[in-house]
């Protein structure tokens, strides 16, 4: 079923939108995969992920990794069900807007 279009300013910022878009077709992705696929710096990705976690759109899990020689843990990132719904609705709104349909309703971050 197609979601109702709903423009969400909280994830329309380019980096936030690209992260959500990359996480949408998968269950989870390693931090390193996100960083290299999106071509972002570690600091930029970390900061944006913190914003998305604060919004409840993304969750992160840290776990020890047998593939690492050092003691650092691997961070896994996934969309929450709330984030998935928000992204799908925002994507539908973008499609409507791109196709010249009526302007969608806008969710502002500070609502």
């Amino acid at each position: 079923m197609e979601p109702d279009p709903r423009f969400d300013e909280a994830i329309h910022a380019p980096t936030r939108l690209r992260i959500c878009g990359l996480l949408r077709p998968v269950d989870s992705a390693d931090f390193a995969v996100l960083r290299s696929t999106l071509g972002l710096s570690e600091a930029n990705l970390s900061k944006t992920l913190r914003s998305l976690v604060a919004l409840g759109y993304v969750r992160t899990d840290k776990a020890a990794s047998p593939s690492r020689a050092d003691a650092r843990r691997t961070t896994t990132v996934a969309l929450t069900s709330h984030g998935r719904r928000a992204f799908d609705a925002h994507l539908a709104a973008l499609r409507d807007l791109a196709n010249g349909r009526l302007a969608p309703s806008v969710d502002r971050e500070d609502d």
């Binding site: 423009f7 910022a13 380019p14 939108l17 878009g21 807007l97 791109a98």
Partner: peptide
């Protein structure tokens, strides 16, 4: 720095650019 410059009034061109970026990432 996080790129957080969402437009107050999104335009069709802006929406198409966002969709193109999402498609490139996929």
């Amino acid at each position: 720095m996080e790129s957080h410059q969402s437009p107050q009034n999104p335009t069709p061109d802006g929406a198409r650019a966002a969709l193109d970026a999402l498609n490139a990432d996929r």
